[in-house]
Every structure is written in structure tokens, then in C-alpha cells.
Amino acid sequence: MTAPSPPAALPALGKDLVGLEPLSAGQIRLILDTAEPFKEVSERAIKKVPALRGKTIVNLFFEPSTRTRISFEFAEKRLSADTVNVAASGSSVSKGETLVDTARNLEAMRIDMVVIRHGASGAAQFLGNRIRSNVINAGDGMHEHPTQGLLDLLTLRDRFGRIEGLKVALCGDVLHSRVARSNIWGLLKLGAEVAVCGPATLIPREFAELGVQILPRIEDAIAWADALNVLRLQLERMEAGFVPSLREYNRVFGVTRRRLERAPRDLVILHPGPMNRGVEIDSDVADGPFSVILPQVTNGVAVRMAVLYLLAGGAPDWRSPAGGGAGKPDD
């Protein structure tokens, strides 16, 4: 007698995805593995599978976002979910409604999932703790941006065939970066070596306690790493006095072709976008042969499809969804 297979509704990830810190290496690998076949869906003429048919998803964006919101929306539509976009400026949120009231109202509308982007660290977990729907963190303050971390992992795995043993340096404004935190947890859990590099004003030195190397100069990072993940430097950081000028930032910490040419090996360059060309990264690097910035964007849709699918209770064998035949792969 064979053992019964686990029920499809068994959540492989738990109810919510608030970050990569709480996930195990196995859970992260499951998401990446589930994303692989979803990549192919986006290459089809008819880019749609019925995996989430009948599910309702709210994309709740309290901060402006183009790339992440569109990526989630495509992922949801390609899984046949019904979606509503709520932007903070066009809702009662701008009238001073609290997050807890927003949560209760969403709950009352019996939605299945919420994708939330919010300026406060912990907002996704706050929402997840208060509603029954699945909550996916699309970026909360300076905390985490787990789907960005996952798509970076997937892009690195595509390029190198593995994560374990890779040396990845996160460069720039690590202090304020939710992308950096999700990358640090994901990379460490999958066995990569991680370094952070940037002006000391933007590097939390406590990360050393997690086993992250702190490299003071961009030249050190370039000499050490297999891949650089170049973080966006926001203009506000200059205004708040963390760096004296963008010009000096580029001169001292910019990822330039001249610096990369001195690297002992070819480096893969990632950037979560949107880029400040000529500040943290020069155009000829961003557009150069070692940049995987556009593959990151493509992988973003597949990773988000995988997360939505798994949180909805989908078993990894999504190719044979119950109650719908249209999801069969073409071949």
C-alpha cells in the first residue's frame, strides 16, 4: 500500500509570505522550483492557466509602485484570478482610515488574498495577523521584499546553476533596503556567502552578527564577489545627510565599467530597479553583457505566480488542476 499523498490544501508555506527570514531553505527551494514551470506560461501565446480561477486578490499599494504592482498583476491574471488594485491615494486610506480598519473591510468582502505594499516595516505581518486571507508582502518599509529576494535567487540560480557557495555582495544603501534584507536571508539560508558594501552611514554593522561580511570599499566587493546586487540610492538619503552628494557617491561607490574591468572574474550584475543611472550604477554596466537586470524582471512574474499558487494551497503539480482542463501544458 502506498502512503497517501498530502492533501492539496496543505499549506506548504503557511498562510502568509511576510518575508524570507521565517522560511526554511526547503520552503525557499519549493518556491523557486515551482516558479520554473511558470516561466514557460509567460512564453506562451495564450499566457493563462486556471490555477487560481475564482480566487479574488486585492493589490493594496500604500506606496507608489509600477514594477512590482504590474508584476503581481500579471502573475495574478496569468493564474486566472480576479484582481482589484487599490492605491492609497484613491481610497479611504487617504482619509485617515487605519490599517486595521482597512483589513477588517477587506475581510468582510471575503477576498482570498491581499498583496500589500506599505511604508511601515511590519505592515504585512500586522495585516496577516488580523485577517484570514493570505497576505503577501510586496515590500514593507525597510523590512523585507520577499518576492524580490526570491526573483533575485531565481536569477542567480539560472545564471550559476546553484546558490550554495556563491559569493554575493549587496552594494549601496543596505540600511534602508528591504531588498537587501530579503536577499540576505534567502542567500544565507541557501548556503551562499553574503557581503554588504557601501558607505558606513548606510550599512547596519549589526549584520555582521548574522554572518554577513562588511566590505568598506566597492573595489573590495568587486574583487570578492561572483555577483553584485546593486541597490538603489534614493535621493532622500542625500537630503538626510547619509551621503554628501550623489556625485561623490558615484565616484566612490558607483559600479562602473572601469572598476569591473579590474575584477578577477566576470561578475553578474543585478539591480532591483528602478535604477539611478550614473549614481549607483553606470549605464554601460546596466546595459552590459553581465547585467541580468531584465531577466530579473521576467523571473519576477514567475516567482510571484509560484508564491500565489502555493499560498492558495496548490500542490506543486499545478499542471493538472482540479476542475479545469485548460491548464494543460501545450506539449
Binding site: 527570514e21 511590519g122 514593507d140 518599509g141 525597510m142 523590512h143 547596519p204 549589526e206 552578527e209
Partner: peptide
Amino acid sequence: EGLVSARLGLK
């Protein structure tokens, strides 16, 4: 300000 604030992304 310490490891916990760094992890939580809180100032």
C-alpha cells in the same frame, strides 16, 4: 538600535 532593529527594518 541593534541587531533586532536591523532585522526588523525599524529605525
